[in-house]
Amino acid sequence: MDHDLNGLTKEKYAAVADRHSAGSNVVKNCALAFVSGGLICIIAQLFYDLITCSAASHIFGEIDEESGKTLTVMFMVFLGVLLTALNVYDEIGRVAGAGTIVPITGFANSITSPAMEYKSEGFILGVGSQMFRVAGPVIVYGTAASVTAGFIYYLIR
């Protein structure tokens, strides 16, 4: 390469670029993720307590622990989808970071957002084929990891 920027080498340039490239504020981002992730969990817990409390049993009937957990997950997924559809989840995510990515609301967001984006390419080649482009790898490798873990558990049990 004959680009002689005053004899600047790639190694020297990497140091210059690094010096000018501000890093993310890890402490602040972690704190925001902790608080926002915690808030999402509090909302889920409140919902769970509400539908399983004795007062609610007069309205919904008796909801056991398992059904309560399932309903809570469904509610949180719905909340993630709703906030994505209302164009606010990305605004919250810009501040909250991992706090909104890691909980199940983030999973819902990662499926809803490409579904919305690719609706313009139709329901088959757009929504159908693209909606798992972010969540797909999580599902594939999550399944593969659980199979591997199960197999190891079977051998050492």
Binding site: S21, A22, G23, S24, N29, T84, N87, Y89, D90, I92, G93, R94, V95, A96, G97, T100, I101, G106, N109, S110, T112, S113, P114, M116, E117, Y118, V134
Partner: peptide, 17 residues
């Protein structure tokens, strides 16, 4: 965003650079 990065409505942080 659609061409190069993630769907517009996907939540996440952007680095300072």
């Amino acid at each position: 965003e659609k061409t190069y990065r993630t769907p517009v409505e996907q939540g996440g942080q952007r680095p300072p650079t």
